[in-house]
Amino acid sequence: GATALSNPSVSNRRVSMLLGNGLMNPNFKMSMSGNNPSVSVSGTSNRSLQSSVSGKAQASLATSQPQYTTRPALMYTLEGPAIRTSRLRDHQRIQLAAGQIMNLIPTVDPEFQGYLDPSTGEAMVGVVMENFCEKVETGDEILLAEGAIRAVVEEVDLVKKRIKTRVNNKAKLRERRMVEVRGKFIDQPLLSDRDYDAIKFISKNHMDFVSMPGIRSVADVQLLRDALDKANCSSVKILSHIDTSAAIRNYDEILDSSDGIVISRAYLGMRIPAEKVALAQKWMCTKANLKAKPIIIASQLLDTMVDAPRPTRAEMTDVANAMYDGADAIMLREETANGDFVNKAVVVASAILQHA
């Protein structure tokens, strides 16, 4: 039994890698050790980066281990209706301290660069949503970076289009982090112009899957399927992200209309009580297994490996428990998109899955 589980040729468990800036690391290689991985391209506006990811994955078969007879599956993750922070100057993280002022500046320019003002010590961070000022009010709690950074709104200046917040905790802010206003649903179109542009890229580069954040109902799944049909890529399979309370309520219908499910735990944990996420994960996996629909568990699996070469024991146990819950795959996100140990993260995840 142990020998069979450790042999990747007889294991169907997979590691999905979300690739981004980590691809540009000169030490990066498309790791094929352990389980045959799938590769996910994020909804970045950098077309050269997207093409590089696709090209490396397509070419990986030539250097893969002999037991692999197909290339890694290619998955494109659309941006969806999520609100995100802007780029940061020189791509450098901003060190935030408890009590520090962080000014949020609504912008329509996804390439706006946030920075730390040395003269005032205040952080200036863009939020890629033009009318964001109109959606918040004094006293609102803003969550950034999957809830790792919390700030309270102290002032909303509609003239200067600036939101003054005070940070609650010490943290480092990376660029393009998700923004959430606790307790408020900010309605936005499921598919943006950037997503429709990305669908053309999906069609041109023969992606196998498209994963869609922000799915709330069957109507959302159908909207995406119609968009894929119009782009002549109806064969692309749809993986619906479960990352909102509405998606939980409509889970059975979303499961039936999708080709598979992605449980986005970090985002879900900002929208339902965090202590209920583990139970929701088990419940969703069981239902997907009963209907023979693939289900992927994503986010914060080996989060320590963004900055460190080894995960914690708790993280390793979490990856194994994902398999015991009935998941077909795990998705490494920050670990491989922006981490310093991309290859090691994939190797570690694969080793855990082989022995789970």
Rank of each mutant, 00 (worst) to 15 (best):
A246R: 12
I105A: 05
M24W: 07
K164E: 01
G121A: 13
E315H: 03
G22I: 13
S240C: 14
D256E: 10
I94W: 09
D303A: 08
A292H: 06
R47H: 09
V156A: 10
A73C: 03
G147K: 09
K164M: 05
L301G: 05
R166E: 14
L268C: 10
A266H: 03
V346C: 10
V167C: 10
P81W: 02
A329L: 02
M284H: 14
G260I: 12
V348A: 05
G121H: 14
S9I: 01
T286Y: 06
D157Y: 09
R166T: 15
R174Q: 10
V53L: 04
R14N: 09
K276G: 00
I352R: 01
K237Y: 00
S42W: 04
R249I: 09
G43S: 12
R182I: 03
T304V: 00
E134R: 11
A97I: 01
L18W: 05
G114Y: 03
L5N: 08
E335D: 02
F201L: 06
L144I: 09
T63V: 11
V10A: 02
L255M: 15
L268T: 09
L224D: 00
A145N: 15
M17L: 11
S211Q: 14
E137H: 11
P26T: 12
A356C: 15
C285H: 02
V156M: 10
N7H: 13
Q100S: 08
E130W: 08
F341C: 06
P81Q: 03
N35K: 11
T77K: 15
V53M: 09
S52F: 01
V136N: 11
S299L: 00
M102V: 07
A2L: 05
A171V: 06
S64W: 10
G214T: 01
A356D: 14
V277D: 06
H91I: 04
F112E: 14
S6H: 11
I199F: 07
S234I: 10
D226H: 15
A145Y: 06
V346N: 13
S257P: 04
S11G: 12
D303T: 09
G126R: 06
G139K: 05
S42Y: 09
N343E: 12
T304N: 04
E334M: 05
L144M: 11
S203Q: 12
L88D: 00
V262L: 05
